[in-house]
């Protein structure tokens, strides 16, 4: 699937072509994004809107505030739950997963 990016804009030049494309996975599916952009932005452009399922009422949640304040976009990133994907930069090879519930603590190795 190709990313839906804003290419033509009357004012802004995003210079997407100058950005470094990296691969990451979302729930096992391989996707592409730009290195350093927020994980949430990369997912959104790949058509992913649901980032987590709430613990109590099992509601879908996604992007909301984009400033790391509202906790709507928490996901599991490289095994770590409750990562604020709107302010966490995408890196090559990241394993991003939908977070169902609150995340599970794992013993340190």
């Amino acid at each position: 699937m190709t990313r839906k990016m804003i290419k033509d804009h009357p004012i802004l030049n995003f210079e997407h072509e100058k950005k470094k494309v990296v691969k990451f996975t979302f729930d096992g599916r391989e996707m592409e994004g730009f290195e350093g952009e927020p994980i949430a932005a990369a997912l959104h452009s790949n058509g992913v809107q649901v980032y987590r399922i709430t613990p109590k009422h099992e509601r879908t949640r996604g992007f909301f505030c984009a400033i790391g304040k509202c906790s709507s976009c928490f996901m599991i990133v490289d095994g770590v739950p409750n990562v604020r994907t709107c302010v966490t930069a995408l890196e090559a090879g990241m394993k991003v997963e939908t977070q169902t519930g609150m995340g599970i603590l794992k013993p340190e190795k």
Binding site: K4, M5, I6, K7, H9, L12, F14, H16, E37, P38, A41, H44, S45, Q49, V50, Y51, R59, T60, R61, G62, F63, F64, C65, A66, I67, C70, S72, C86
Partner: peptide
Amino acid sequence: NDLPGVYGAGAVQTLMNVYGVAP
């Protein structure tokens, strides 16, 4: 009001004007 697709105005601006992604 909690469903994905309900976004703050600042967030919409960030997504589209900083990162070039349409909300």
